[in-house]
Amino acid sequence: MKFKRTTVAEIAKIAHLSPATVSRTLNHPELVSPTTSALVHSTINLLNSKAEPPIPDASDILQILVNIPDPGNLFYSELLDGILKSADFRGYRVLITRDLLDSPDSVDSIIRQIYLCNIQGMILCTSLSDAGYKKIAAHVPIVQCTEAGTADYSYVGIDNYKAAFSAMEHIYSTGHHKIALLNGSLSFTYARQRQKAYCDFMKQNNLVIPTGYILNFAGIIYEAAYASVSQLLSTANHPDAIFAVSDVFAIAAAKAAAAHHLKIPDDLVIVGFDNIQLLSAVSTPPISSVQQPRFQMGYTAGEILYDCITTGISSLPQRIILPTELIIRSSSLLK
């Protein structure tokens, strides 16, 4: 005898619960109250006492969209691991998009994806205009991760200014004061905040910033950084220290220094950012770097978004600022 399968949507309708709550009860019963669990299972029995275990329809599955502007950047790997860990625990599915969201058309494309893929929420890891935020938030709740936009939406990240200023203090303490900055595009909030910290520190310590000492790159691209640093080190007034806002930039600077027969850290002190172990810890020499809690940022963003979706409360934005730590290695450790 073939039994009719009961769907999550049918159970939710009869029990007056959301499909997400029913799905959570079936997949993670430890996360719901005994009353909710009893209601769901009694509803299943009511619908069909001989029914097979219910299976979720595609439309019943909780899905979120994560925007990652540069999937090739190792920074996002551990961040995404954190989001996926939250997804595994909460029983939802993660879809990834790499749209830059730098135009009205790209925002409209995201909104089309939201409806085509039945997206219930979004984690943004890129910069976006206030108008773009409002347009997307009219359809789904948003959590900002690493890139702080408008204060109207929840954000998980670090204090970029404080972390960069701390790195500059460490460089200054080595006695190397001709400090250059390798930075990302100023279209990103993190780049603007870290550059402001650099400029403020130089000004507060009466240090001149020569022309060419601030280098901004459109992306985190090793080849571009290597070429620019090589050119900078060829000048008569080349820096004796480099603060790089990415470990990729820091590695490029170290390779350029080696090509110019400069010793690190004696001739050139280098400090990076992100503390990506695959890069900073195993390079020659190992690179000092600001450690970001990337996994924790991703996991926390996933948890906040899940709460917004399942409770329906997204009007009270949370701002979670996680701590950073400067990991000092040979590239800035003078004997």
Rank of each mutant, 00 (worst) to 15 (best):
S103R: 05
S103E: 09
S103V: 03
S103L: 03
S103M: 03
S103F: 08
D105V: 08
S106D: 13
V107K: 12
D108T: 15
D108R: 15
S109W: 09
S109D: 15
S109T: 14
I110N: 10
I110V: 14
I111G: 01
I111L: 12
I111A: 09
R112P: 10
R112L: 15
R112K: 15
Q113L: 15
I114T: 13
Y115A: 05
L116H: 11
L116S: 14
L116T: 15
C117T: 13
N118W: 04
I119K: 03
I119A: 03
I119V: 12
Q120C: 14
G121A: 06
G121K: 03
M122Y: 10
L124K: 08
C125P: 01
C125E: 00
T126V: 11
S127F: 10
L128W: 07
L128P: 11
S129C: 09
S129M: 04
S129I: 06
S129Q: 09
D130M: 12
D130F: 13
D130Y: 12
Y133M: 07
K134M: 10
K134W: 05
K135W: 10
I136D: 12
I136Q: 10
A138C: 05
H139Q: 14
H139C: 10
H139M: 07
V140P: 05
V140T: 04
P141F: 02
P141M: 06
P141S: 04
C145P: 00
C145T: 06
T146L: 05
T146D: 09
T146Y: 04
E147F: 05
A148C: 14
A148D: 12
G149A: 08
G149F: 11
T150H: 13
T150L: 11
T150C: 12
T150W: 11
A151H: 13
A151V: 02
D152I: 07
S154V: 00
S154I: 00
S154K: 01
Y155C: 02
V156A: 08
V156M: 01
G157A: 09
I158H: 00
I158R: 01
D159Q: 12
N160Q: 09
Y161C: 00
Y161N: 02
K162H: 12
A164K: 02
A164V: 02
F165D: 11
A167K: 01
M168E: 00
E169D: 11
I171A: 02
Y172S: 01
S173K: 02
S173E: 07
T174G: 09
T174K: 04
G175C: 02
G175T: 06
G175I: 07
H177F: 01
H177L: 15
K178H: 14
I179R: 04
I179W: 06
I179F: 05
A180L: 09
L181R: 01
L181G: 02
N183W: 11
